[in-house]
Design a protein around this nucleic acid. Structure first.
Lengths: 281, 281
DNA sequence: AAATTTTTTGTAGTTTTACTACATGCTCGA
DNA sequence: TCGAGCATGTAGTAAAACTACAAAAAATTT
């Protein structure tokens, strides 16, 4: 934010530049000041300050205060920036890492609003859990499957449409179907969700909350989708999904108590003795 | 700030608690909302929201918005804390997320000291790239394979020991072998690394820098291993590996220039038209 | 150099927003 | 059943953000 102001400072008119310089000089005061106060400090009028705000790409004065506190509280910012063909290699890699970190931070912030208790309740005594995902989400599904089965619950991963639909068609009330999708627009997922719910199974989705799939499930874990405007930008929401499943896995392990921790330890130990390297979650 | 709200939540009156819960559920929206909007969302009146603000020790609604954006931008140190059986579910999940976030932040910090240029150089005109991993690292290998092949370079993933050793035995000088391992103590990886190097291939490892494997490769991407003292703690270094591969992938795409960005765009478009959901990074 | 356009800036007014005083309603104990 | 005390909402106020418009200054043209 402050960088942005600095950047466009020379392109501003005298009065507007005065506003920018004062903000750069007193960012802390500026963040808490009122429009009138700021105008007075910069010896200009309120509309000029407003014009300044618009000029730096903000919606208004309120936005300025918000962005300013944000900039001040946070020395390192992991905001999402698109990678372009002209970026230097280290720069582009940092951008990619930042996008990944940010997607995890966003997910962490939303964690408390997610239906974890209900999901754990459904999974705890489930007859079986199926993780469904296509493409890259298929990897996530397989990964989750390998993780959850170690709690002693039968698990499958479904990585193609026929499998998913077939599972939905023969699902039973004690079954849990977890749908993994980025956009949530995949029509067969909607069909599968409807089918599985009709059969009494619990359907959980980790997907875009605005999507068709989201509307059809029992429990929704909203997963924000960062628009990948550039071909270089990878899908970092995949990492967020993995991390969320890690978290749910731990919640489920805690809910199952002794049983789970025993099972977990035993399966970890089984590997440790002979195969030091296979990671086991 | 959010923790503070969580803390005093039980001490609040029903309407005030509703406000608190909504804010915890939608922190981002709350930070940008107006007083009237917030009251409406919580199905209560404006003064109740104001009283809530005072109750959590703020001067007013304006303060709330400020503190909230502050909290969202970088409130917490995401240090690693072990999960224990006595943790509450939300607490345990936060710990898991924090561990994941921290491992990415650590990786980001080390990025500049990694042999990216050399790795990209080796991969750029490689005859083929093989990603090898066992257990959970196998997923990472498969994921990486699907990602890199889209740059137009032949790729394989090797997920069991015989495959890895066989590949090493027939490797050629233009080949690149990427070894993925958490501990790096797997003896067959050491053999494979030696074998492949003897055949003139470039061997890259993403692993624990203290390990045997690390000593045997051409290029090492150090990957810190968080000791998992508790059975509940999952391996968050897996996420760091994935993110690192994302970053290397982008670096490679940039290095290959037009060719890569064309290939990428074409493979993205191919999916977009018919299959809106398969993510394609 | 005068006139005209364009840009910059401020005045005055409107709408919106945060906040307050007060009244109603509700709960709970006697 | 009756108030005491608390929770909650209504209505109003002050102030803040924002807008329309016009004056002034600068730049451009004639």
């Amino acid at each position: 934010m402050l960088d942005k102001i600095n950047e466009i400072l020379p392109m501003l008119s005298p009065s507007e530049a005065r506003v920018g310089r004062w903000i750069l000089a007193h960012p802390k005061e500026a963040a808490n000041a009122t429009l009138a106060r700021l105008a007075r400090e910069c010896e200009t009028s309120e509309p000029t300050v407003l014009r300044f705000c618009r000029r730096v790409g903000l919606s208004g004065f309120r936005d300025l205060a918000l962005r300013l506190t944000e900039a001040l509280s946070n020395p390192v910012r992991y905001v999402h920036r698109d990678v372009g063909p002209d970026d230097s290699t280290p720069d582009a890699m940092l951008k990619v890492m930042d996008a990944s970190i940010q997607s995890l931070i966003d997910m962490r912030a939303q964690l408390s609003s997610m239906p974890v208790e209900a999901a754990v309740e459904a999974m705890r005594e489930a007859r079986q859990i199926a993780f469904a995902g296509l493409g890259a989400s298929g990897h996530v599904a397989t990964d989750a499957c390998h993780k959850f089965f170690r709690l002693g619950i039968p698990c499958t991963s479904l990585c193609d449409t026929p499998m998913i639909l077939q599972f939905a068609a023969i699902a039973e009330p004690e079954d849990v179907l977890v749908l993994l999708s980025h956009t949530g627009r995949w029509p067969d997922f909607v069909r599968a969700a409807r089918l599985a719910r009709k059969r009494g199974a619990t359907v959980i989705a980790i997907t875009n909350p605005e999507s068709d799939v989201a509307a059809e499930v029992n429990l929704l874990f909203p997963c924000q989708l960062i628009e990948d405007t550039s071909v270089y930008t990878p899908m970092s929401s995949r990492l967020a999904q993995l991390a969320l499943l890690d978290a749910i896995h731990v919640a489920l392990a805690l809910a199952r108590g002794e049983t789970a921790s025993d099972t977990l330890r035993r399966s970890k130990d089984a590997l440790k003795s002979n195969f030091p390297d296979i990671s086991t979650h």
